[in-house]
Design a protein around this nucleic acid. Structure first.
Lengths: 193, 193, 193, 193
DNA sequence: CATGAATGAGAGTTCATTCAT
DNA sequence: GATGAATGAACTCTCATTCAT
């Protein structure tokens, strides 16, 4: 595949991503993608042979793009407590955003395709986040900001709360105030008095 | 509709429920339900005019059936701490069970049909559970078993963790040990030392 | 079939007639008739085994009812010219009426079922009308009101104009003024100067 | 849509026209058209999304094709009386023909879809015909062949007779002799003695 | 007689997928 | 590479007709 084709492939993935953000995963048809891309039916099949293939690629690109949330500057200058605060704000922003939210699509895809843990990028992200939080808590304790007996358990707990908020925002709906309250609750639990 | 047809209607709902448990909501066709019920095309349409109508009825029946988790005996004899423990075990059992789990279907349905909070039975269940937990915590404090500064916040936190576990069990997959660990973490947070 | 049943049968025909007047013939289903009659599905089949059977009966009853347009009083006291005038007014009223008009149904039925002339009640009515008009013209000539070289041809011409107006009122739509104008034209053609 | 598809589209319209001529409008299904065209289900939907759309197109093409009945040669050399005679013969031929007659379909379509006069092509054709006949009568009077006090009324009368004959040929059935007789009657009415 | 539940054929419509150009 | 016409399977929904009660 030449460079031209690669560009087109990426273009398709970009456009398809918008469709998945809009409509979820189940319910998205090849036709939807074709129309979003304004290409021909056959054209899409040159690059992808099913909605699933496109979606997997969307996920792959997504995970490539979202590697570094925090720039090196922040990591050096800010305290762990501050970084954890930023991290949680980031999570809040993501789970509340209406447009450009792949959550629903990811959920729907996960429901249908039970992926073994090893290849489950969603799971990897979860575990990674737990480790990051844990590390921040440990550092925070050293820095005297936090106080916590079970950093790993607390980190996991935080992530499950975030997952709970994420799914709730897609189902029963939640307000920003609700998220703020939950985050405050989480942080209060580890603050050194 | 006579009593006979009411029986049949219930029969259809029962069978359809199994289908939704098996396949979720999106992706279930009238044909799936027809085959599960072993009735004719037209036969199903006598009772329900769309998959959605059937599903709503499944939910309605479900909510009717699951009213009283705790018998009066338990409520009188057990301590609040014990009841909360039972409640959490109940949640664990439900969110871990492979067969007979409507979670996926409910999620998929919620994604597609954003229901206003007032009519959202899923939300009502959530809020009800928060209130129940809060009350148990307060009583537990009085009974000297628990110690907690913000019973309502804690109750909400517990429910978001449970929601997080529920969605995780449907997506990344979780083991019973994981759930146990999270529940222990939650309980430890309110135990009086 | 007892008297009771006969009553019910007639009731069905009455109600079905309203349906045919409303919706034509093609497009009317057994269900439509059942709903109009507020009887059971099986109930209708006890009396009629198809929409066509019902419609034939509607036509039969219709032709029985519409025998004598003119009372004996009128026939004795009025002049032929006056009677012809009344007859044409009658035709006008019928072809213009919105509700209670079987024309469309009769047309649709005739299209589908080419009936041999002998049994074609619609045709019989046409021929009968031609004869009546012819007779009136002949009498009108004797009475000195009309002047016409070919009474039968004129009578036929009048009926074809009326048929033309009838179908036009069902397709392109016509106003009462249009019908008046045509009738005046027809009458002027036979008036003695 | 490229030229190729335009050809196919026209092909479909041609074949569908035959179906409508055969079976009328109501009662024609997409399947009928599909089978007549020997194409696939989906194939038809590429071009038309309902029976009605196809039928409208049939009518549109029909009206495009039947613009000029009379060549310029005839119009220059023949007398008005002769042209009127030709016109009436043309009408006769059309209303009597068994195959290739869209009348029934047009009637059925008109019954179902009351079209406002402005857009009603069937009505336009009627009005156009009235004007043509009127003009011929006026010219015929000038040429000394005709004698008529109310050319427009007469023209309208002729057209209503023709409409009457047309619907009669589809319902009660008429012979060529009947049509000839009526035409003779009409012409005799305007011939100068 | 009367009911209405049940059946299955058939109509409409959409879409994934292929393939000649 | 790219197009879009073509196919047929699958889905939704309606109705004529039957039949046990």
């Amino acid at each position: 595949m030449g460079e031209k084709s690669l560009q087109k492939r990426n273009y398709i993935v970009e456009k398809a991503k918008e469709v998945f953000q809009e409509k979820g995963y189940l319910g998205v048809t090849m036709k939807d993608i074709i129309e979003a891309c304004e290409i021909s039916r056959g054209g899409l099949y040159l690059y992808f042979d099913s909605v699933e293939t496109v979606f997997k690629e969307v996920l792959r690109m997504e995970s490539e793009e979202t590697d570094d949330v925090f720039g090196p500057d922040i990591l050096e200058t800010a305290s762990s407590a501050e970084i954890l605060g930023l991290f949680l704000q980031e999570q809040k922003k993501e789970l509340l955003k209406k447009k450009g939210n792949l959550s629903r699509a990811v959920f729907e895809y996960s429901f249908k395709n039970k992926v073994p843990p090893k290849e489950n990028t969603y799971r990897k992200k979860f575990d990674m986040a737990v480790r990051v939080i844990e590390k921040l808590i440990v550092q925070g304790i050293e820095e005297g900001d936090f106080c916590c007996e079970d950093p790993r358990g607390t980190a996991r707990n935080m992530m499950y709360v975030i997952e709970g908020l994420r799914i709730s925002s897609q189902t029963i709906g939640i307000t920003e105030e609700t998220v703020n309250r939950e985050i405050r609750y989480l942080v209060r639990g580890i603050l050194a008095e």
